[in-house]
Design a protein around this nucleic acid. Structure first.
Lengths: 231, 231
DNA sequence: AGAAATTGTTAGGTTAAGCTAATAAACGGT
DNA sequence: ACCGTTTATTAGCTTAACCTAACAATTTCT
């Protein structure tokens, strides 16, 4: 009962192997590692796994060869990739690289039906007479739509329990769900207060912090309810 | 340096929690487990992880509450989900359940830009005057496009090394990359031959198989090159 | 041909996410 | 108010996918 299904990660390896063989004639461990941005031992591992599943012919120190099953499977995977890529670049007008990366990420979880229907959609929009103005619209509108998070805007607001020792920060918000908010407020833990983490207690999940000169302890569970911003 | 990014799995938990709280008022471990199809201890684990990251307020045996950060994040995730779902059901005409499942699978790896552009595409096709005929086309064509693998067509063709002991099978194909194909062919290992696995040798990676009355051993590496079909 | 550089593998560790079995807490009916 | 049922947690194991460090094999250069 082999189920013809392999993990996303192995699919990536198989796809990479097929492509490297196609362009360079043979896939070396190092090439695969570079392409997938992993270290060589990870590749060796993956090759063994693919071999056990009968998808490649692998023996130490000799070139990897796809078996017929492996080649077939690689073809399926590459097809998925290329359909997705042309959706992202052709309709959503993502640039080459981003279309490719996005396709990579979702190619492992897309079924045949979705894929075929995507092809229908792509071809309808690309080919139909009556879609000419839609095509113009997409061409001009899509490239203007960019909403990637400003990268760093919220990035340095973190919960107090994740604040590194010694780093100083300002209280941004104390969550209303923290039990005993009032008590903490009395101690000075209100938005705007500058504080520093002195250290973590070895056991008991305690955090020692320094607030306005004096220091106090609180459980790191509770600290999670206090958001601070690095200064 | 908290990076505001959590794993796909934790995103699933967060999304589930937000939805359960919304519909039932409070999320119990059991509800979450059922919704995500995992066992309760896995939920407990996840809750602890979310708690450490300051996304929920969690203490043993008391109801889970989203922190403000958590609620915000859940909203983002649910938004991704709903956009994707409306793409799959509105344009590709997948049925409710499948649209939902597909959205679930890819919502974790889609960036903001792609999402916004999807919205543009969906709205353009749904709203533009000049897309009326495209809408008709999609409505009638999509539902007919179904290519889900026949489920079981190729499923019981497996490499010989994965054949369970005792199970009998027929050789379907011997890969041309197997070294010494000829030798094996002489022993009767050609397409059409009926065989059975007698057992695996404790060490040495050997497989003992029975072919047409006589028995022979081969390395399981090599067996991977022989595809058999269960009978 | 043999030393040096490159490439590949093994051994063993880490993390995330799941699981089962055992234990503990909370709830609900009499 | 108790006891059994239900729900939740802890402890400890498994697997997949990665990693580093150490070792082994293969090329390349002279």
């Amino acid at each position: 009962m082999s189920n013809n299904v392999i993990s996303s990660s192995l699919e990536d390896y198989l796809e990479a192997i097929a492509e490297i063989i196609e362009t360079k004639g043979h896939a070396h461990t190092k090439d695969i590692a570079e392409r997938l941005q992993v270290k060589m031992p990870s590749v060796t591992n993956a090759l063994q796994a693919l071999s056990v599943r009968g998808l490649i012919n692998y023996q130490s120190h000799s070139p990897v060869v796809l078996t017929s099953r492996g080649a077939e499977m690689a073809a399926v995977i590459r097809h998925r990739h290329s359909v997705l890529k042309s959706f992202f670049s052709g309709l959503l007008k993502l640039e080459e690289k981003e279309a490719d990366e996005t396709a990579c990420k979702i190619e492992h979880v897309i079924g045949e039906t979705v894929l075929s229907r995507l092809v229908v959609l792509i071809e309808a929009i690309a080919g139909r007479e009556d879609c000419a103005s839609l095509r113009d619209f997409l061409e001009t509108t899509m490239p203007r739509v960019k909403t990637e998070v400003a990268e760093g805007e919220l990035a340095n607001v973190i919960p107090l329990n994740e604040l590194p020792i010694g780093q100083s920060a300002v209280v941004v918000q104390v969550d209303e769900n923290l039990r005993g908010v009032k008590k903490f407020a009395d101690l000075g833990l209100v938005p705007g207060t500058l504080l520093q983490v002195e250290g973590h207690a070895p056991f008991g999940d305690l955090l020692r912090i320094k607030v306005m000169g004096s220091s106090l302890s609180l459980r790191s569970r509770d600290a999670a309810f206090i958001c601070v911003k690095l200064t």
